[in-house]
Every structure is written in structure tokens, then in C-alpha cells.
Design a protein around this nucleic acid. Structure first.
Lengths: 186, 186
DNA sequence: ACACTATAGTTTCATCTGAAACTATTTGCA
DNA sequence: TGCAAATAGTTTCAGATGAAACTATAGTGT
């Protein structure tokens, strides 16, 4: 489903403790604000420039900003919000299809669906062909929430992206795809 | 401490539901693989192209890959690993300085420190000037863990980054900085 | 029809999480 | 000095989390 033609990773990437020429460092240091964009020459770890850490902090910041949209006003958790967001445009999805699309945990989805059903935001109807499955769709109330939260979420995304030029955004998109593939193959 | 000269966000970024010319869409659609790098013209949300979601998925993937380095072999949780990683190069930090540097929760840090002290990876010594504070530093065992985990973590970072050209990495660094700033001002 | 395997979804359990309240100490100021 | 406010760190509590076990249904081969 993902990544057909992936670039080949050169050998040094797989070595446990890569070493690099010192000479490359000073050249890169002069390059603008950016540091650590060049191959890591040290075996010291500076958390603030460590990519996994930076991703985590950024992601948490953004997630909690998004959460502030739906958490207070609609008493939705992140998992519930995501389930809602996925079911909205695709009524009739099953829970496991939601799992596929959101990459969330099966248990988390199950519980989120439960809560959403209880709070009358989605309906759950047993599939007639396969009684293990349930088809999920938004209720009128669910659509109302969806209609309110989605524009706010998109607006927040825009507030993030508006610091980037159109070219930057395209670049970001490409880089995230590349990193996603790289991360996918562990 | 962060962000002195930040770019000004143009007005539409603050509007709750930005609208854009339809005409921009088709032009951008032709642009390579990338979609959604252009201003969102629709009020539909496609989770897979939604930046906050992509960041979250990527970050989780990467985090769990990193975790597999230290979790199994050293019985470290993510918070403990981070505390270790921060204290390592800066012996004598206090817990709240760790909080500042890691952007982690105060409680999480407190508990991580507790566990690390119990497992003899760090020592905690009351500050002589301020008896509320404790100075934290790695023990011999802590240094051993640090010395083993850090290279593995850096190697993993390299495996991620090796799908990017040097120019890409610099670009990534810049974009993450920009997004970080944007996220920081909510 | 029967047994075996796979899949959908739920429950259990042990752990992690963070907001709020709390203790202890220091700092600011009258 | 002495008292109010701030700070460092811990505890409490209520909920979120995910691995593993479980239930129920469907598919597959004999």
C-alpha cells in the first residue's frame, strides 16, 4: 500500500555509530541558523537538535493546539475526534477500517467509538453480511460537531502553514513523505 | 529564550475558515506528488493530508522506533531516556531545569527522576544553597547506559535522515524551526 | 457437517498520564 | 523581623493507554 519506489539507503546509514569527517562541520556551521542538518559528527546527543525529539515536541504542541478546539467545547478526546474526522466523509466505515486509516490502536478506536455512540455522535449498525462488523456513520449531532470542528481545525492548520511559502509547503510535504517512508521501514 | 524575530502572519491566517480561489487548486494539483501544500481550498478534512495528523503519526513511528532501542534492553521509559539524555552532558541540572529543556511535564520528570534514582542510573544531591532543589548527575551505571544508548539513537536518526540529501536536511531543519515557532504562538 | 484458522471487536490488567492539590523552602517586601 | 507570594518537587486522583487474552462470527479445507 505504501512506498513502491523507495530510494536506496547508502551503507553508512546502517552502521551503529557513523563517523564523519570533522571538516564538514565547520562548513555547515556557517550555514544560516540551521545546525545538525549535516551528518552528525559527534557522539554527543543534543536533544534540542535531535530529530525524533523535535518531531515529538512539535507534534505535541500542534496536537494540543488542535485539541483545544474540540476538547473544551465538545468534550472530545483526540481519538474520538479522529474517528469522527474519518467517518465523516466516509459513512459506513467499520471500526477496523478506521483503524487502518488512522493508524491508531484497535483498542483506542473501539473505546472512542463506544463513547461516540453513547454521546450520540455516531450510529453503529450491524453489517447484514458479516455480523462481526458494525457500520459507523455520523448522526445529525455528529454532523453538527463535524461541521463546526473541521473548519476550525483547518484554520489552525493554515495558521501553522502560513509561516511557510507555497514552495516551502510543497517541500515540507515531500520531506514528511520521505521521512514517513524511512520511518516506516524502521 | 525562543523566537526573537518572527515573521508576521498575514491576516487571512487568523480567520476561522479561510477561503481561497478555486483557480489555485488545479494549478497545484499538477505539481508533482505533493497535494495539500497549497492553501486548503476545501472545508473537507482529509486526515491523511492534514499536517497535525501527519506530524503525529510520523512522530509516533519515530518515537517507538527509538524506544525499541532503550525499552527492551535497558527497561527505560521515554521520559527516563530523555532525562538521562539531558542530564548526561550537563551534570548538576535540577529537575526543573530538565523540565525546561525537555518541555516535558513536571510530574513526568519527577517520576522519571525517581525511577532513575531507584535504578541507580542517576544520583540526587540536595543543593546546598537552596534546599528545595536537587542536583542530578549520572552515576557510573547511568553513564554506561548513556554511552550505549546515545550512539544507537544517533544511528537511528541517521537512518531516518539518510533518505534526505544534505540540502533536504537543511531545509527540514529550517521548516521544523518555522513550524515550531508558529506552533509556539498557538 | 466438522475442525481449523482468521478476523472483528471487546474486556482485562497493569502502566502511564497530567491537572490540581499539597509540602517545604526561599524570596520579596513592608 | 515577619508575612505574603513564588518556586521546587511530590502526591493524589481520575482518566487514557496498549498488550494480551477473550468472544463471536466468518472463511477454508476435508
Amino acid at each position: 500500500m505504501v512506498g513502491i519506489g523507495m530510494p536506496i539507503c547508502s551503507s553508512f546509514c546502517l552502521s551503529p555509530a557513523p563517523t564523519f569527517k570533522e571538516s564538514e562541520l565547520t562548513a555547515a556551521e556557517t550555514a544560516n541558523v540551521a545546525t545538525r542538518t549535516d551528518p552528525a559528527p559527534q557522539s554527543e546527543l543534543d536533544l534540542e537538535h535531535f530529530l525524533p525529539y523535535r518531531l515529538s515536541v512539535l507534534s505535541n504542541l500542534v496536537s494540543s493546539a488542535i485539541a483545544s478546539i474540540y476538547a473544551e467545547r465538545y468534550a472530545l478526546g483526540m481519538t474520538e475526534w479522529r474517528v469522527l474526522a474519518v467517518i465523516g466523509p466516509s459513512p459506513g466505515l467499520t471500526a477496523s477500517e478506521v483503524v487502518e486509516r488512522t493508524a491508531m490502536d484497535k483498542v483506542a478506536v473501539s473505546r472512542a467509538v463506544d463513547r461516540l455512540v453513547k454521546s450520540e455522535r455516531i450510529s453503529r449498525r450491524e453489517d447484514s453480511n458479516d455480523r462481526r462488523r458494525s457500520r459507523l456513520r455520523l448522526t445529525r449531532q455528529g454532523r453538527a460537531v463535524y461541521a463546526q470542528v473541521v473548519p476550525a481545525a483547518l484554520a489552525l492548520e493554515q495558521r501553522l502553514l502560513c509561516s511557510l511559502s507555497p514552495a516551502d509547503r510543497q517541500e515540507l510535504d515531500r520531506l514528511l513523505d520521505l521521512l514517513g517512508e524511512a520511518a516506516h521501514r524502521l
